[in-house]
Design a protein around this nucleic acid. Structure first.
Lengths: 149, 149
DNA sequence: CTAATTATTTGAATTTTATTCAATAAGATA
DNA sequence: TATCTTATTGAATAAAATTCAAATAATTAG
């Protein structure tokens, strides 16, 4: 047996989906060629970054979720944006923002469980340049990626 | 002229997309019927909640983004989860989580600009039961919804 | 352990959908 | 107004999804 589902989840995570032109056309009561034209326009103008799946993360062994607030030491490795772009490469990280206020960055992290999260923090997030880490652990995810759960 | 793009953005926000079976099949070097079978299985088991677009929010007049940390007064209107589900209905709100620690809830909000955000906080987020609001305003969005910007 | 049952894989045929193309219409510009 | 650009749309084509039936693999029951 091939285990295809994990590969599918991996691909659908960030892309490998496409708009349903015919369904949108029916819904908006417009010809599908009009919808097609307008969607391609949105894509060509860069307004659409990707089409992707949103998962029930509990069911795909990614039930643990936390928001992590970070501070950086002012001296070493300086640039928070560079660090942010490096962190963004990890597929465990859903979002990365540089923010105002008492913290400099907030990242949203998903993991299988608290142990996996702890390992991820230890190996990836804790690093030279990070001076303080505050974890806001999600007890109940009500909405994510604009999709209600 | 019809302004279709706003309607498209509205629909593609939460759904109206579908997986690209043929492209996935090529990528994984499997027959498209096998991919089809496995994707339907994921869907039927409820592992996939939706297929949707991710936008370049600056380009669709949703450039403002903030994480809002909330506390509730213990007495009135009690249930944070109920409040969370009500907030989740607003399309301006990308995510809602009930969390551990100094705050009880974190929501991620998008708006056209700071003024629109302020109006949204005034009219929707501030309400009986909310005792404290802390805004972490995003200065730079590096990754969102698992998509790098 | 073996038989029976269930789940998965796959090619061929069919149905549906996306895409291309050309003509027209609408809007913008000079 | 005349000209150029952008948007809409139907018809034709190309591509993709879906259905179906058969074969294979995995699991379960006896």
């Amino acid at each position: 047996m091939k285990d295809i589902s994990q590969k599918l989840i991996g691909l659908l995570h960030r892309g490998y989906a496409t708009p349903q032109i015919a369904r949108i056309a029916k819904r908006l009561k417009e010809p599908s060629t009009t919808i097609h034209y307008n969607i391609k326009k949105l894509e060509n103008e860069g307004q659409v970054k990707a089409y992707k799946a949103v998962f029930d993360y509990k069911k795909i062994e990614q039930g643990f979720c936390a928001y992590v607030l970070l501070n950086f030491s002012p001296d070493e490795y300086g640039d928070p944006e560079r660090i942010g772009r490096e962190l963004a490469k990890y597929e465990e990280i859903e979002s990365v923002d540089i923010i105002t206020g008492d913290w400099e960055m907030v990242i949203k992290v998903r993991a299988n469980d608290q142990d996996a999260y702890y390992e991820f923090v230890k190996s990836v997030i804790s690093r030279k340049g990070v001076s303080k880490i505050t974890t806001l652990m999600s007890l109940k995810q009500i909405k994510t990626e604009f999709v209600e759960l």
